[in-house]
Design a protein around this nucleic acid. Structure first.
Lengths: 194, 194, 194, 194
DNA sequence: TATGAATGAGCCTTCATTCAT
DNA sequence: CATGAATGAAGGCTCATTCAT
């Protein structure tokens, strides 16, 4: 099996395992088993457990990024709305991503490497959201007098809250309700209402 | 040392340790050391690590509950506002509570016992929030046409997001910004605006 | 089994194992097996493999020291002669001591902790040898014009050489020959010959 | 690269590594890295780690032998003196040789192959020393009544002791002192003094 | 010839838990 | 009540060696 494929298989296995058992269930031997190789083979590709974890973080962030970029040209407000919609759809189809994201979120509190990676993701996201909001202000759909940083921060909080909520309420219907409510709340705040 | 006091000391030590080192640093021996007793003694009072963790959860929820009940009679909207204010103050003065809460939040995904305890806390909170909102509708400060369950869920999401945000952004000033923004966003949504 | 006894048993087992298999065969599990306990039990008494090794060094040096002090009052020259005799006897009866000493000698080149312990032994020995030689000079049996430090160093070298020689030539009779020769050589050098 | 050259490069690398990190740091992969080839390639040339070690021993003994043969015709006593001088000079200029020799000395206690090789070196050396001493007796510079085997053994011990001493005392000046003392002691013993 | 991939055996250490005193 | 002793299971990691290409 070629190197790059093997690495992908291992990262996927690690990702899957963390989603299933959490970071506390993230064992090198277990990942190797899932990837169908010896644990020593795994450490042949990733020099340490930590290195593997960083590859998992990278894989996760890369995936999240790709998703966001798929939608074509729309209005800023529609793009924002689409973010919530994407979140909702993804929680249904790929809940693993959010389980893992949450695990990492917590790990980041004590792991600088993970912290940096997540922070840079959030910063990139802040930039994107700022851009959207400014565009909205320009085309008149977003209220011009809004304090931009506050709105951006509020969006981040909203997403973080939804992601956390998704995990415990995924199947209760409350999550879907929450997504709609968060959007309604936001829309009322930021849009120009005639 | 009487049994009940000893138990309290141990739970407090466990709480402190989890706040400092996270659940991954939650070791029976370390807790015993902090509590000033032998690890075997600790397991005399709590039959297992798991049992101790549940006592910690209980302690945390009890603490959170007490806080909420301290404020006297006000208007429903003021009480709601106070919730955000409490959160903000507490994150500054007692960040441990939120670190531990987040740790447990994640543990709950895989630990039914913890999950049940947290869920019952959230359900109690939902009840309280519903009550406040209904009061607000009655006295005319809250818009009557709001879908109550959605609003409640949104409040929960907002708080969860803020708690998570608090940990990574506690010192950057972004957290404070986020609290204000969340409240502004909510207030604009639910209040009757002339 | 009381703590101090258990510790002794473990140190003895470690010592024995190093004597039999060298430092490369010095495995925590093997020591535990020889000591008749679980390897985790061993690490209950000695916090790490390294800590155990230091206990072994301590045990060895303590043993070597005791041996030297057993002989009563004699003339300085006789005491010096006795050192060689002790060495010879001990190599026959307890060759392990010299195997282990040699192993540590080499380990010391890369292990500061061991190096310090051995150095302090040699320094103590230098002191003792200097004392003997000075006494000999005083009572006229040792030549007064000898350069004391050189003689002492030469004695150390002689012993180190003999210890090393003992291991490979223990059974060939060459070792015994070498001891006698070393003494003869030394005696001719340092004593006053009429 | 031709086979014989490749082998030399690998042996040199192994020698260097053992000198730097000792036998405990003697890793096949590390040697391969130093030799600039893949570890699997290394095991193509030397069927096992053990085989490589033997090649290192061979290389060491060959080097030591060459050194001894370089000096031209002199008197037997001068040749003997030269041995000590050579030792002193070499410890300064090429301490690696003595580090490795000591490592092997100890390994020989448990490794028959190494033991045989070292023993045959010592036997050759014994032969050479006996030859020198007999020549000295013949030309009258060495006392005729000396017990030849004892003197030879004593010489070996002296050298072994010095080599061991060199490693720990190379920089303290004690080593130089010891060489001189050993020679003085020997000379006094074996030479005819008018 | 040369090498990347793969592996099994093994090592030190950690930790929750049990138990006799 | 309290505790020191003891342990089994497991975890991350290392390393010599094998093998297909």
């Amino acid at each position: 099996m070629p190197e790059s494929e093997r690495r992908q298989v291992i990262v996927a296995a690690a990702f899957q395992l963390i989603a299933e058992r959490g970071l506390e269930g993230f064992r090198v031997r277990a990942v190797a088993d899932m990837a169908g190789c010896n644990h020593a083979t795994l450490l042949h590709y990733f020099s340490s457990k930590e290195a593997l974890l960083e590859a998992v973080v990278d894989f996760l962030l890369r995936s999240l990024r790709q998703e966001g970029a798929q939608h074509g040209e729309t209005t800023p407000l529609a793009a924002l709305r689409q973010e919530y919609e994407d979140l909702r759809l993804r929680v249904q189809s790929q809940p693993e991503f959010f389980v893992v994201l949450n695990e990492l979120e917590l790990r980041a509190l004590r792991d600088q490497a993970v912290s940096h990676m997540l922070n840079s993701m959030y910063d990139a996201w802040r930039g994107y959201l700022s851009y959207l909001l400014r565009q909205g202000m320009r085309d008149g759909t977003v209220r011009k007098e809004l304090p931009l940083p506050e709105v951006v921060e509020s969006l981040i909080v909203s997403f973080r809250g939804l992601v956390l909520h998704a995990l415990s309420e995924r199947d209760t219907g409350r999550f879907r309700m929450a997504v709609e409510a968060e959007w309604a709340k936001l829309a009322g705040w930021i849009t120009n209402q005639s």
